[in-house]
Design a protein around this nucleic acid. Structure first.
Lengths: 250, 250
DNA sequence: GAGGCCATTTGATCCGTATCAATGTCGCGC
DNA sequence: GCGCGACATTGATACGGATCAAATGGCCTC
């Protein structure tokens, strides 16, 4: 069904050349290519809760998230919604070669995007092949992640789903997490219970119950509603149902 | 985690130059590029039920399916399995730049692959940018499909899931379907009930029951266990829960 | 501090799908 | 033709998560 929008994880590094870190797009760029990127970029800001794109929207840009968190989701006619991606800083929004968005993008926290006008960006891509290569690598990684998430949605229990989500947040959002002595960790949940339920294909009540259950089992502790303390990460990993050997830790 | 293998839908056309139809990879190739492709390709055959790749396997090739059907799936420690992709003729297996397979690939029917040795193929990609561009387009399409499937897995009822799968098979496997007068269609299911359940995140019993239910409702008819007759495709579409307006028909 | 709003938790019950088990059907080799 | 095995259907029951409903807690405004 058509069209048009992906989130690509950009392995950004501060390149020292520019206020935003779009170095990954151009990590192998010559200085003059960097200048071209510089020329076609601009910024956009969105407040928490604000929609960034609706499915079907015309997109005149591709973008990289500088700060904040957004969700990528799909809503059925009757209102059932499924989150299909969680966009963190350095993730990529948009798709070269397509004009319309295929999913809804919503800012969960305040978000700043570094946008590149689509046409010039596509032009740049054809002129500098390694940008396309980098995008291909990132897209293939995203595809693997999406497929792994299918297993979560299709085969895991509610408890395993929650553990999997907590682990993803713990691993991906380096800025919000803090290592504890031993194999523990503290981090803040960027999502409401409802957003978590949209991600996991559950109801918000079930999410709440399972978080309580994990707390009662001593797997996690809560400080307020959003801060999660994991005394021993291995215990949480054990709850995901995943193969422990194959799993990369943090 | 991580790594390594994607299925990319190749829009193959018989190019008249070669017994297998790898034209899509090279639809914009110059004749001499075609010759290079010709040099690095070879064939492999697999019998129905045979594994093509196991997750973690070293892959020395990328390939395009010439004939037959394969599945892409993931199995948890305890045996729960989730199919994450259905590979039909013209689909692409493998991933340039990665050495190991991330998912299991199994031949459902007898399968013939047209393989390209990975290194030379990657070399070719860097020399002829439009091959990479084509792969990027295909991968982005696959990513969209994967995300749409997440909604099926996370939010649809068993009946809606079955209808969605039937529709996908009806739409994708042109070789096996036959248009009926009016808005009807006949096609053969390439999958066992168990494979369908793996795809849909259900049990095989539930699959069987829901197919029976659709039959009793008159949405579909069965001829034997595998041949499906859909008197009116619109009726089936109505069962998917999808937005009818947005749906492309066939 | 009172009141209101929103996110979250908790409780009671219902329903859809899983599970366990038996039966049916088709194709194939002997 | 018979029996076997693979695949599929159907039935009875259990259980996990959804649904409907109410209570709690934090935070903000007035």
């Amino acid at each position: 069904m058509a069209s048009a929008m992906g989130s690509l994880h950009l392995d950004l590094k501060d390149c020292g050349n520019c206020p935003i870190r779009h170095r990954a797009v151009c990590s192998r760029c010559e200085p003059d290519e960097l200048e071209v990127l510089e020329e076609i970029k601009y910024y956009r800001s969105y407040e928490a809760g604000q929609p960034i794109l609706w499915s079907g929207d015309h997109m005149e840009f591709v973008a990289s998230i500088v700060t904040g968190i957004s969700t990528l989701s799909q809503t059925m006619e009757d209102g059932r919604t499924q989150m299909v991606g969680l966009l963190l800083p350095s993730d990529f929004i948009g798709r070269p070669g397509r004009e319309t968005a295929a999913f809804d993008v919503v800012a969960v926290s305040d978000v700043t995007l570094c946008c590149f006008r689509r046409r010039p960006f596509e032009q740049l891509m054809t002129n500098t092949p390694h940008i396309g290569q980098r995008l291909l690598e990132m897209t293939l990684d995203e595809l693997d992640s999406a497929r792994e998430w299918m297993t979560v949605l299709g085969r895991k229990t509610a408890r395993e789903k929650i553990a999997s989500l907590l682990l993803i947040v713990a691993r991906r959002d380096a800025s919000l997490r803090k290592q504890l002595p031993g194999d523990g960790m503290v981090f803040d949940l960027p999502l409401t219970r409802e957003a978590m339920s949209d991600y996991l294909g559950l109801t918000l009540e079930t999410v709440s119950r399972q978080i309580s259950a994990l707390r009662k089992s001593g797997i996690i502790q809560l400080e307020g509603k959003r801060r999660v303390i994991v005394p021993d990460l291995q215990d949480l990993i054990a709850e995901t149902g995943d193969d422990v050997d194959g799993g990369m830790i943090i």
